[in-house]
Design a protein around this nucleic acid. Structure first.
Length: 470
DNA sequence: AAGGGGTGCAACCGCTGCGGG
DNA sequence: TCCCGCAGCGGTTGCACCCCT
């Protein structure tokens, strides 16, 4: 769909009356364009072809820049910001209009996986496309995928990771660094992202693929259960190797299905526009997570969160993936899921008082944490902490793992995973879990237990009851 | 045919960085 | 060093159009 907001000359009169002469004209003066040109109210709203012509003529004569002087030199009653935006997004030469090509779409996805909401940077690598265009495309895509309950990044998208240990040093980071990571944190409802200083596509390299892939089954179940938002981004769930192996028929499950030559390395993008000549192997060093039982992990907060998504074969409606990937076997789909890691940024401060780092902005996490603290006075929770480095075994055999989403922000929800049941057939059902009180609904509980996810209902209900005023 | 919701694009708004005075 | 204005960026909103009922 393509619209043009340029109005014809007849519309000029209409918009003139709307924006310049109507009693509410003054209300249309935004804070960004508060100046008044030539004593008249600056116009807002859609541009007319006449205005476009004036602006084009101005740029031809004066060049780009000095946008605030446009209204001084022309009859254009537009603020500089508006002029710049109009020129950049619609009038400048070599703009490519129309739908994004498949290559462009894939490049956007991959770039977003790498840099987050850096629309301007993305636009630099998409000739003829504007940041606004890319941003709109992405936002639309997010909505669409979230509605469909699909993961943000399709299987096969190779999300790069920043080598945090090298790129980010909390103790020495400056304001800009922090802001960059704040930007990462603000990547929408469910976007975890990575930063790259150069434009190379990188691999996500795990020190232990077994461990990395082991995150998937448990998290997939949970993320599926948690709903759309949570399905895109989950805090990592870090069961032990042995636990996870129970979830699969063989520990070589992923290796066998791995398309990569190097089992330690997830595939890199072979993007048509970039090729694969640039590779940067990076590692997910850690992950950051919280625990609904309020226990503080004994190890340091984990850094790279992991995008956890259901294997694509679970999506019966996942035909939308066709545009991204060729049909694959369930096994390879499982592997594909490994590719689509999202990472959360590291905590901005090392000395976080507890597991809730500044990166953990999930409201529910905080509420749950508070509730847990309250509840801990009454109960001792059976759940245990998880090994953070993937090498320590977590107590099992009836133990449950309380898991919350962390870096996902809005994807705050939780579940308790009974790992022994993970080898059951997955029945992707999405619980409509939005609020803690909803979580108390028995149907939710039933739904979980149907596909091998149960929660510590007594303790959790107590916690939630406390939280909700109980 | 009408209307209501969905979709996508254009534009606005607020904020930040940077450079000059 | 501080202040101010400009440019740019990313988030948000407004609205026209489409589609379904």
């Amino acid at each position: 769909m393509s619209y043009t907001m340029v109005t014809d000359e007849s519309d000029d009169a209409m918009y003139s009356s709307i924006y310049n002469e109507s009693p509410s004209a003054a209300d249309n003066i935004g804070s960004g364009c508060t100046s008044r040109g030539k004593g008249s109210v600056l116009k807002k709203g859609p541009w007319t072809s006449t205005e476009d012509g004036i602006l084009i003529d101005y740029v031809k004569r004066h060049g780009e820049g000095n946008w605030n002087t446009v209204q001084k030199h022309t009859s254009l009653a537009r603020c500089g910001k508006s002029c710049r935006l109009r020129w950049a997004n619609h009038l400048r030469p070599n703009l490519k209009k129309g739908a994004f090509s498949k290559e462009e779409e894939q490049l956007i996805v991959e770039m977003h996986a790498r840099m987050g909401n850096k629309w301007a940077q993305m636009a630099e690598h998409l000739p003829g496309r504007t940041d606004n265009e890319i941003k709109n495309y992405w936002n639309t895509r997010i909505k669409r995928r979230q509605r469909a309950g699909l993961p943000l990044y399709p299987p096969g998208t190779h999300v790069e990771d920043l080598h945090w240990s090298q790129e980010y040093h909390p103790s020495t980071s400056n304001v800009t660094d922090r802001r960059r990571h704040q930007d990462i944190l603000q990547l929408g409802n469910s976007k975890a992202n990575v930063l790259f200083d150069d434009l190379t596509f990188a691999n996500v390299l795990f020190e232990d693929l077994n461990f990395a892939t082991s995150l998937l089954p448990v998290a997939s179940d949970i993320s599926d259960m948690l709903g759309t938002g949570a399905s895109s981004y989950m805090s990592p769930i870090l069961p032990s190797h042995s636990n996870i192996r129970q979830a699969f028929q063989s520990p070589e499950h992923f290796q066998n299905a791995a398309p990569q030559k190097n089992p330690r390395s997830c595939s890199i993008s072979d993007h048509p526009l970039y090729g694969n000549q640039h590779r940067t192997d990076v590692m997910i060093q850690d992950s950051h997570h919280t625990f609904t039982d309020g226990m503080v992990p004994t190890s340091k907060p984990l850094f790279g969160a992991v995008k956890l998504e259901l294997p694509s074969f679970q999506y019966s409606e996942a035909s939308g993936f066709d545009q991204w990937t060729t049909p694959s076997t369930p096994q390879s789909d499982l592997l594909d899921s490994v590719d689509t890691y999202i990472q959360s940024p590291p905590p901005l401060e090392i000395d976080e008082p507890d597991c809730f780092s500044s990166c953990d902005t999930g409201l529910l996490d905080m509420l749950l944490h508070e509730a847990k603290i309250k509840a801990s006075a009454k109960h001792s929770f059976s759940s245990t902490t998880c090994a953070t480095d993937g090498t320590q075994d977590v107590p099992r055999g009836g133990d449950t793992h309380n898991v919350t989403s962390g870096a996902g922000g809005n994807s705050s929800a939780f579940a308790v995973v009974k790992t022994e049941e993970l080898d059951q057939v997955w029945e992707p059902k999405r619980a409509d879990v939005i609020r803690p009180d909803v979580l108390l609904e028995s149907s939710w509980q039933d739904q979980q237990s149907r596909f091998g996810i149960v929660r510590d209902s007594s303790s959790l209900n107590d916690a939630l009851a406390l939280l909700l005023g109980g």
